[in-house]
Amino acid sequence: MFGTLPVYRKLVTVTLMLGLLLIAAILLGLTSGSSGDSAAAWQHLLGRGASDATLETIVWQLRWPRVVLAATVGAALSLGGMVFQALLRNPLAEPYILGVSGGSAVGAILGILAGYSLFPGLALSSFAGSLAVLLLVLLLGNRREGGGDALLLGGVMVNAFCGAIIMFLISVSKTVQVQKIIFWLMGDLSAAGTASLPLLLGVLPCFLLIFLLAQPLNLLLTGRESASAMGVNVPAVTLTLLVTASLMVSLTVCHSGLIGFVGLTIPHVLRLILGPDHRVLVPACILAGASYLILCDLLARSLPSQGEMAVGIVTALVGAPLFVVLLWRERR
């Protein structure tokens, strides 16, 4: 149904529709949860009902920062997945599977051991970790034989190695802080708070930059020489996109640990519905990725009868089977 529309009409339509989805997800995220009564929370949001200090704290102090963090992380991870899939020409590429998230986590933990603060020290060490892994994975996948599978296998191995390093660091460390970060292995959004602000500020320019490079990315998909002949500065665009995507991912990992498969699920579903034009996919990935993680987090904190579970469990339960289906279709 979107095939024949000119791109600006498609862009506006998609942005409006997914924008509404995001608003709905945010409202749901604010009003539902394990504590409190959601009808009362709706009343509170609509400005009706008696003012209730406890409810106000739950909605605005607990849930709101968490919803904002989930939205940002979800948007960044799905956009990151989209960029890696297009640049590496591999539909299964994704920050978590490629090990880029794992590299960021190792960088972040080393930063914590070194005693850095969250911003900018931790963000930088995490960014360095993601770039190092990206470089390693690209080198591993660059071998002629194996092609796309070599890239994925390399990524999975790097990821496993990073996981081992994280566990090693946690077990030998005596720092109380580090012992708490077991959540890094199983992405979790409970760390939400005012510290999330620099993260937000950091990913917004990344979103804009990737949106501006969406059409060059489309052209790149028709071949490097073909794109270059149409006026795309191929090395500059490729490098900018890889670095921007890694930066985005590492900023989210600092706050939420390893949340997998968001970057696989969302871009795939969207590409199926909207087609491959990245000028439409970029805003779509941002809005749908944000909505998706808000809803996954809602499940994570309301499903268990006591306490909550890590959001990474929910995304992996949805994403891992999808990965298998896609892998099977690729092989056929």
Binding site: G3, T4, A86, R89, Q215, P216, N218, L219, L221, T222, G223, E225, S226, A229, M230, G231, V232, G275, P276, D277
Partner: peptide, 21 residues
């Protein structure tokens, strides 16, 4: 060029429009 990648499923119209870049 001799060969153009058709890996990502762009339509004919989308491909031709890329010439406007």
């Amino acid at each position: 060029p001799q060969q153009v990648d058709a890996g990502f499923p762009f339509t004919v119209a989308e491909t031709v429009l890329m010439g406007r870049y």
